[in-house]
Every structure is written in C-alpha cells, then in structure tokens.
Design a protein around this nucleic acid. Structure first.
Length: 439
DNA sequence: TCTGGGGTCCTAGGACCC
DNA sequence: TCTGGGGTCCTAGGACCC
C-alpha cells in the first residue's frame, strides 16, 4: 500500500505561511523572469488562470479581480520542502521524495486505519510548517496519485466525488462499485503519466474516463503508444509495476538555462551568460561529487515572435578528461557557444548542460590518440583544492564572490538579467531577511 | 512589448559488428 | 546482374513529470 503526500499549491502556500494576508485571495507565483504563472491558489484557479499561462495574459486581473503575483522564491520553497519531507518521513519505513512538494510513502504491511494516519500526518505538517497537504492511498503508486487527485478535488468541488473525504482519500477502502464510480467521474488526462498528446489520441479512440482506460486492451495500447501506458493500465488495475525508490540514483545530467530579460544578439554578452551558467552547473556537479564527460550548450530565438527568423542551435563538446573544474567547463562551454553562434539573431534564451556524468572513481579518460601535445593530468584530483576554496568563499560571501573572468560584466547593465520584481524575503534561510515581529 | 526551468524514460533509426 | 540476418550501441527527438 502506497501513499502520496502532496502540498496543496505549494509555492503559494509557502508564501501564505509568512504573509497570512494572502489567505483567501487569488495569488499566483511567477516563473523566472516573471514570465508565466507556475503556481496558483484555488482562488486564482477559479479566476481561470491556467498553469504556465503567460503573466501578460492575466495581468489585467490584478486590477479587476485583485489577483496578486509574486516572483518565485525557490530558496524559501526548497527549505520549506525539506521541513515537510522530514515530517512525512516519520510515518512510514520508506519515503521517496518525488518532487519539491510530493513524496511517496510505502506502507507495506503496516496495520491500522490509513485514513486516520493520513489525517494525523496532514495535521502535523500543517501545525509544524503551516503547509496544507493532501494524502492519497492506493495499492500502486498510480492509484495513490489518483487518490491524491480525488482528495484534492473533493475538497475544492465536493459534488464531484460525493463519497470521498476531502484532503485524505484511501482508494483501497472503496468497494468495487464505488471505485468504478470514481474512475468513471475522472477524466483520463488526470492519470499520472497520461499527458496532453496521449489524452487527445485516447479521446479519439473513445477513451475519455479513467474507467475507459482501465477496461481497454493494454496490449493494443502498448503497440499504439509505448510500454509506459501498459504499465499505467496495470497499475490502475492494482498490479504494482513501480516501487518506492528511497535512494534515487545521482542525476544523469545537470542543466542551467534561463530566458533573458530582453533579447541578446551580440556574442560577448552570450559568452558572459554561458560562462555564468557553466559556473553554476559546475558548482552543482561538485555538490553531487561527480565529473562530467561532455558539455552541451544551446541558444535559441523566440518561437513566439513570428517576425523574427528562428534559430535554435546546440552543440555538445566531449571533454578529453572528465572534469568538475569550473575553468575547464566554462572554457568548453564558451568554445561550444562560439561554434554555434551566428550574428543577427535575437536570442532570448540559453542553456548549459553537463552530460555523461561519472563519479571520479570510475572515470575513464577518453583515449586521445592525437592529443600528445596535451598532457593528461588527472584533473578530477589535481584541481579540487582550488575548486573547494572557491566553493567555500562563494558559500560564505555570496554566489558570485569568486568566479571566472568571462562570467563577469565589463561595461553597463546586462540585457539578459532576469526580472524578479516581486520576490518575497527568504525568511527561513537568510538571517537578514527573517520575519520582523512588532510588539 | 511580454510566453519557466530542470529533469526522466522510451523509441526509432543509423552506424557498426560478424 | 546479383546485395543477409542478427545483434549492439549511440543519438536525436518526443512525451511526460512537477
């Protein structure tokens, strides 16, 4: 038996913990660059704000409906998340942290009233962190996700699931006819793993509800789609195909990408951005204790601007010796950038990705038959001293305290600097931004 | 004027092997 | 003129997740 614990409207809920005046009001949290809505309060959803909807499209609701928009404050959300996760972990022997606001718990073999356990968990997380959660139980992870969806929806629109308890739902306790009624009442697109494209194709084939999918021929659908949908169907029927994974493997890639505050056309400014991104991913790489075998860089023009010529090149540069050294990675990234850059385009976004990640122990140097002029030191070892010192300085004095020269500005403000005009204080991680209480 | 960022997994197709 | 079959590995692209 699995549980899925999920914070309701996570980012908005985090903001509300420290600004209770936001409770009951329509609130959205904006993506980097204040570009799109990435979290919505129930009130904002009721105003019709869609997930990932561009801010400029709903901005008029600020005046007409009192919509409040905040810039994303990931430092705050990350810290709130770890508090919530550690509370949830105590309720089961196994926890898988699935995303910043969700975790699976494996309740296998645990006796007792699960709904009561779920309610207790909810109450504790709410009391200790201020975050409201929903808890769903099911015989498989997919059913637990479905139960969670039911729990949330039953809270917002009680009429849609008359039998379900708001905020805590155990599908395992429902008698078969009631379970079928729930599945009949739920659109297939709400199932974990069934996205936009698949939903459209399923609908064409006459599959609209979860119940339709459960009763469909899994073998035929596997042929039409992929093995993923077959597993999903089996899981919905109660056959577990996925386990709770409490020790997730290290990342296979590390990325840093961002859209710019305004378009960039000149190479020097792109060099600066790409150097900054490469420094960031290098730091993350060292945190994970890995080295990268290749660096990938992309730049892109806007796919929305019809009047601009579109150009979205990318390049991958293998490293002769896998490395976690900022200087090595920055210089590779800049070389890759120079190879793909073409003048005269309005670039709106860039990214640097580290791939072919390995732990230093298992590093296999690329055999370099013709690189005799390039002596092959073991960089993973030789440069850790400098990199550790740099990381320590940046930890203490701020992210950009020490960095490579190409990542710094020579003249004037950067066009690529992203807008973040509505960010709340980082209450829980910066002493200078802590809440002030007035007597 | 203004449209997120960071990941995973699966599949098809090409290159290559004997 | 005639042009195999079975396998692996890699990559690019697509779909999905939050």
């Amino acid at each position: 038996m699995f549980a899925l614990v999920d914070v309701n409207n996570m980012y908005v809920s985090c903001e509300r913990v420290f600004r209770p005046s936001l409770i009951g009001r329509p609130v959205v949290v904006l993506s980097n660059n204040d570009g799109a809505c990435i979290a919505r309060s129930n009130e904002a959803k009721d105003l019709g704000v869609r997930m990932a909807q561009p801010w400029f499209e709903v901005r008029h609701l600020e005046r007409s409906a009192g919509l409040i928009a905040l810039s994303a404050n990931f430092e705050l959300y990350g810290d709130m998340s770890s508090r919530m996760m550690s509370l949830a972990a105590a309720y089961a022997p196994l926890q898988e942290i699935y995303s910043i606001d969700e975790c699976f718990l494996d309740f296998d073999g645990m006796p007792g009233d699960r709904v009561a356990v779920g309610c207790d968990l909810r109450a504790k997380v709410l009391r200790w962190t201020g975050l409201p959660t929903s808890v769903g139980f099911g015989a498989t992870k997919t059913l637990a996700k479905l139960a969670n969806h039911v729990a949330k929806t039953a809270d917002r629109k009680p009429s849609s699931y008359p039998h379900a308890l708001a905020q805590v739902c155990d599908l395992g306790q429902l008698p078969a006819p009631a379970l079928e009624a729930v599945m009949q009442a739920t659109e297939v697109g709400n199932v974990w793993g069934i996205g936009h494209k698949t939903t459209a194709r399923l609908n064409q084939g006459g599959i609209h509800s979860v119940l339709d999918l459960v009763r469909a021929d899994a073998t035929i659908l596997r042929r039409q789609f992929s093995v993923v949908i077959e597993k999903t169907i089996l899981e919905l029927r109660g056959t577990p195909c996925m386990e709770v994974n409490d020790a997730p493997a290290a990342n296979q890639q590390i990325m840093c990408s961002r859209s710019f505050g305004s378009p960039v056309t000149e190479l020097p400014e792109l060099v600066e951005v790409v150097s900054q991104f490469a420094s960031q991913v290098a730091r993350k790489l060292r945190e994970q204790g890995c080295v990268a075998g290749a660096v990938q860089v992309f730049i892109t023009t806007s796919s929305y601007r019809q009047q601009d010529r579109h150009h979205a090149p990318s390049a991958t540069l293998p490293l002769p010796h896998p490395s976690a050294d900022t200087r090595v990675l920055v210089s590779a990234a800049v070389r890759a950038l120079r190879s793909i850059y073409r003048p005269g385009f309005n670039y709106v976004k860039a990214g640097v990705m580290l791939v072919d990640l390995q732990s230093p122990g298992q590093v296999q140097d690329t055999l370099d038959l013709f690189g005799a002029d390039e002596p092959g030191p073991p960089p993973a070892q030789g440069r850790t001293g400098l990199m550790s010192a740099m990381d320590a300085l940046n930890e203490r004095f701020g992210r950009q305290a020490v960095t490579v020269a190409s990542a710094t500005r020579k003249d004037g403000p950067s066009a690529h600097a992203s807008r973040q005009e509505r960010r709340s204080p980082r209450y829980t991680t910066r002493l200078e931004e802590i809440v002030t209480v007035r007597a």
